[in-house]
């Protein structure tokens, strides 16, 4: 069997935020903006220039599935963990990101989840 080189990593991220503080409703492009600003705060503009794709955004369950290049994965995950709040139109919005699953194959996110608690 030949070895495939996985170029991307996929993460399932769950966000916690208060909808009432937001001036508008949360959309996929807003999520992308928040994530990029978190990466810029911690690692600078060069790391945030890497592609970050939002594959799925579910507003009810506040789950996002994102795709990042393999080399940037650790930095993106650390930036999302250490982010506590973002600025939007002068208001500070506290957001907490939890990366529940991460894998090099997207199908793995559909598989059985790890039960820690």
């Amino acid at each position: 069997m030949k070895e495939l080189e996985c170029r991307n990593w996929y993460m399932r991220v769950v966000m916690e935020y208060d909808q009432k503080i937001l001036p508008c409703s949360m959309t996929a492009s807003l999520v992308k903006f928040f994530m990029k600003s978190a990466i810029t705060t911690l690692f600078g503009e060069i790391s945030s220039a890497f592609p970050l794709d939002i594959l799925k955004f579910d507003e009810e369950s506040k789950e996002v599935i994102i795709r990042v290049p393999k080399d940037n994965y650790a930095k993106v995950r650390a930036a999302l963990t250490l982010c506590s709040a973002t600025m939007l139109e002068g208001a500070i919005i506290p957001i907490i990101y939890t990366v529940e699953q991460a894998s090099s194959c997207l199908i793995s996110l559909d598989g059985p989840q790890k039960q820690l608690a």
Binding site: A74, A78, L80, T81, S84, V99, A102
Partner: peptide, 16 residues
């Protein structure tokens, strides 16, 4: 409570 993070996220931070 908002200062707590998921264990595998913390493992990732430790690399840095």
């Amino acid at each position: 409570p908002t200062h707590l993070r998921y264990p595998y996220d913390v493992i990732n931070i430790c690399q840095f």
